[in-house]
Simulated scan of single mutants.
Amino acid sequence: MTSICVAGGTGQVGREVVRLALAAGHSVTVLSRHVPPTGSNRHHDGASYFAGDVTTGDGLSDALAGADVVIDCLEGQFGKAQKHFADGGARLLAAANRAGVVKAVALSIINCDQSTFDYYATKAAKEQKYAESTLETVVVRATQFHSLVAAVFAAAAKVRVIPVFKGVGFQSISPVDVAKVLLLEAVEEPSSQLHRVRTIGGPDVLDMRAMAVSWKAVTGARGRIVQLPLPGAMGAFLRAGRNLIPEQRIGTETFVSWLEKRKESL
């Protein structure tokens, strides 16, 4: 049994890490800005929840006490959280070091250091903090989640338009498949390499139009599929295929199978 602290353990991937770790018999604590209520889909019986904030350091020592490994699933997409994302990672690593944690595993994004898009740049900056740590660290870079692509379609479908970006494909992945890899890396025996980066992608590389057709078929949504350009840093990143890694197809949950499981809530 390993004692694992999951930072961001109430988020999309984090709560799957918690579920899988508990099912495997590990001791699990969760660090989150807010402790979820019992009975909610963000709360798993058997885990201990601690309120904390990596931007200030509040609550970190309590959540990390006794942990062997920390799995960092924290996000920083907007505002203060994005501005302090990298520094928050450094603060978490420092607290983990003080608590006697021996390994830190962080979730990141494929080729985030090859984009000037703000969110990706903060991910790359946080990766650098992990590379500088005195702890053994593993950064798991994942391709975009199935839910991201579905959300793009759903948002635009409200006005009966389903956008597909010109020259763009995705190798989207299930949060569950990402969580499995994070947990596997967390419980692996110590490595001779102090800092490692592993990149994983979903089981299929799909044209965005094909994904839109599948999304319409599963959800029954109405709307016209329209090809549009995607300008800016994100458009350049996607058109260059930097979001793809065909040689690392991880997991079995395809975009369509993921949609089928959730079609009532999409």
Rank of each mutant, 00 (worst) to 15 (best):
residue 4 I to R: 09
residue 5 C to R: 01
residue 7 A to D: 10
residue 10 T to D: 08
residue 11 G to L: 01
residue 25 G to S: 00
residue 27 S to T: 14
residue 29 T to D: 04
residue 41 N to K: 08
residue 43 H to A: 14
residue 47 A to K: 03
residue 54 V to R: 06
residue 55 T to M: 03
residue 60 L to K: 00
residue 67 A to C: 08
residue 70 V to S: 01
residue 70 V to K: 09
residue 80 K to Q: 09
residue 93 L to F: 01
residue 94 A to M: 02
residue 99 A to D: 06
residue 102 V to T: 14
residue 107 L to R: 01
residue 112 C to G: 15
residue 112 C to A: 11
residue 113 D to K: 08
residue 117 F to K: 06
residue 118 D to R: 13
residue 122 T to W: 03
residue 134 T to L: 12
residue 136 E to Q: 15
residue 136 E to N: 05
residue 147 S to V: 02
residue 148 L to G: 03
residue 149 V to F: 12
residue 156 A to Y: 12
residue 156 A to T: 12
residue 160 R to I: 12
residue 164 V to G: 09
residue 164 V to D: 08
residue 166 K to M: 02
residue 172 S to W: 10
residue 174 S to P: 03
residue 175 P to S: 09
residue 178 V to W: 03
residue 178 V to L: 02
residue 189 E to L: 15
residue 191 S to P: 08
residue 193 Q to V: 15
residue 196 R to G: 00
residue 205 V to S: 07
residue 206 L to G: 00
residue 207 D to A: 15
residue 210 A to F: 04
residue 211 M to G: 07
residue 219 T to R: 05
residue 222 R to P: 00
residue 222 R to A: 12
residue 232 G to H: 06
residue 238 L to H: 05
residue 239 R to C: 13
residue 243 N to F: 08
residue 244 L to S: 03
residue 245 I to P: 00
residue 251 G to N: 05
residue 254 T to S: 15
residue 256 V to I: 14
residue 264 E to M: 14
residue 264 E to T: 10
